[in-house]
Design a protein around this nucleic acid. Structure first.
Lengths: 142, 142
DNA sequence: AAGTAAAAAGATAATAATATCTTTTTATAT
DNA sequence: ATATAAAAAGATATTATTATCTTTTTACTT
């Protein structure tokens, strides 16, 4: 469904959303230790997210990765799109050249609604709203 | 969602379900040509399905792969389970060590119902019922 | 202005998934 | 019995994903 890279990205972004701001930044190594994922790999992932303006970073002394309130308005799907791309959510799930609701493959009617639901929710919901869920104790990161 | 191997397997099995029986068998090369997937790769896939008694084969002259009526009663999930395993449909979608409906990760409530629905449908439906859908023109393989 | 801490970039390595090719074994038709 | 056609098994190759390490650039602090 989601690649490891994407799950790492989501976990790191939500961690930063919960714990960082303009004045409290984190370097990739410490994030990696805290959420228990490989550090150099995470660094690349965060760089990509920074390049796409989904999260913020500052170089040099006292620098690090962090989220601004503006960053927190980005959608969850933008994280997945930046890391994995959205191709895997498009096109026929059986790999047929022709497959749509008019000419469905054998699993089209089974997979398409689920996939649309998932992409839809991730498109509608922001990082902020997922963060709120965690803060209120409805979901968790650890 | 499904690996390429699994999609190849599903397409090949449904093709055999539509076109083969005890007296009409297909070798992997001709199946591969017809449904347009890599032949040697398919051979391995079909061998695995045979070993798991999901499809049938006969060696030697006039041999090949085919489906019996009994084979057609296998579930669709058994194909996926044989090729990919079901691990990817279990466990936390974010990779957290603890994640269930009591202690959900941020995307648990989003992904779990969809995943359960997909696995459920593939568990309930047989190869025969998918074949029927194709025969009646409701879905297609090409 | 100089030193430094950290991101950014780039090079390399390991692993897993996908794909191909070759050899061996088997069943059956003749 | 023998030849043969095809599955089965195994060895090899390629590609994509995941992981690690090193160097360079940047900007802040003193």
């Amino acid at each position: 469904m989601l690649s490891k890279s994407s799950t790492y990205a989501i976990r790191a972004v939500l961690f930063l959303s919960l714990n960082s701001d303009d004045e409290k930044k984190f370097n990739p190594k410490s994030i990696a230790e805290i959420i228990d994922i490989p550090a150099p790999f995470l660094a690349k992932t965060l760089q990509e997210l920074t390049k796409r303006n989904i999260i913020s970073s500052r170089k040099g002394r006292n620098g690090g990765f962090y989220l601004t309130d503006a960053d927190r308005l980005n959608t969850m799907i933008s994280i997945v799109a930046a890391i994995d791309g959205l191709e895997k959510f498009q096109g026929c799930s059986l790999g047929l050249p022709v497959c749509d609701s008019e000419n469905p493959c054998p699993i089209h009617h089974l997979v398409a609604p689920l996939r649309n639901k998932l992409v839809g929710e991730l498109t509608n919901k922001t990082i902020a709203s997922f963060t709120k869920e965690i803060k209120e104790g409805h979901t968790h990161l650890f």
